[in-house]
Design a protein around this nucleic acid. Structure first.
Lengths: 203, 203
DNA sequence: ACGCTATCAGACAGACCTGTCTAGGGCAAC
DNA sequence: GTTGCCCTAGACAGGTCTGTCTGATAGCGT
């Protein structure tokens, strides 16, 4: 019936090669805001303004998209931690405390909903790639903090790093509940105490 | 075709009034092990050995079951915390540290998968009843810890309670990743430092 | 013995979810 | 111009999910 020439809008085309980025950006937003399971492929595709076939070309399965999302989160969050630490100056001890400023900034951002990795782990069973990726992320962070503790001359860098990651994870976990900046301030404050104690200084 | 009298096994019947408990017990197991969304109603019903109509009689919607589950978790976990605190003796300061033994016990249990509330919050959006219930739980815990800190004569009970809940939540969050008992020990150790510092004693 | 209520078994509806497939349209390089 | 690639639109299949409904049965109190 409808003549082939009378087709509707000729399709608002996505420039070649940019489709993947658009998908990943949408996935980032929806996965973080609603959770991995709650965000459906169809919604992500629709909000990306991309065709279904294009989506499946770049991400053969939802799991691949989730892993790409975690990769992106890792890069962003690690970058923010490093930046906050460096902003505290050259002293490693100051950096150990300063990195907690990244937590405060994060929880003041609109739509903050805690740590994407902790949230992802809560939705995935142990042994899956998603879960493993989360564990790897947390280990990287702890290794980095341990290095800082070492440079700061901590009496027991492992112990101090453990304590600090506990506080950091605690602050992130609180963020899932209420993005209360007080939790972040308290985390920084607690970290400061722990660093002082871990360096053998009595505050 | 099939004569009505030739029915199969006459039904392994659940004693009247016990159906709700069986459902809740199964839900407890499946929700915790797989997550709120991953555990489907059909599976819970099948594993409870209960008829679908019976299920919906007690829990008109999945949300009701989830809330009942959280209620149950709250009772159990709060009980374990109180018990661990009391086991540490009558001294409030010792209790503040002793409650962390509940964390160590929990993460040594088989199938430990972190804090059911944090996991639930990760799957629910802010503003839902599930989310609110989680926030309420965390506030109860913090209020109780604050009371203990008060009794212990902390210089700043609020601040100490904040710190301790951060460490507790951090330990629980780590549990989603790896049920590493070292994290629990480190949490107790960190708590001990913080309590000592919060009481004005230099360790 | 009778009836009431709680339970069982399972079909069914309607929504949603992932992933495949067909058919065609625009763009650039050759 | 033609060829090849990347994109669009959307139907479709097969599965899972929640929740409703029917009809029959078991056990308890009276």
């Amino acid at each position: 019936m409808t003549p082939p020439a009378a087709k509707a809008t000729p399709a608002a085309r996505t420039p070649a090669g940019q489709a993947r980025d658009k998908i990943l950006a949408t996935a980032f937003r929806l996965f973080y805001a609603h959770g991995l399971r709650a965000a459906g492929i169809d919604t992500i595709i629709a909000e990306s303004g991309v065709a279904k076939a294009t989506f499946y070309k770049y991400f053969p399965a939802k799991d691949e998209l989730i892993l790409a999302y975690l990769e992106k989160v890792d890069g962003i969050w690690t970058g923010q931690l490093h930046a906050a630490a460096e902003a505290a100056g050259p002293d490693p001890a100051a950096r150990l405390v300063g990195l907690f400023d990244a937590l405060a900034s994060a929880c003041r951002r609109d739509g903050y909903r805690g740590c994407a990795f902790i949230n992802a782990a809560a939705e995935s069973v142990s042994g899956t790639r998603v879960h493993d990726r989360t564990v790897a992320h947390k280990e990287h962070i702890r290794a980095w903090i341990r290095d800082l503790a070492d440079q700061a001359g901590a009496q027991d860098p492992d112990r101090l790093a453990r304590s600090l990651t506990l506080v950091l994870d605690g602050g992130l976990a609180s963020g899932v509940l209420d993005a209360d900046p007080a939790a972040a301030t308290a985390a920084r404050d607690t970290a400061s105490q722990l660093v002082a104690a871990g360096l053998g200084r009595n505050p």
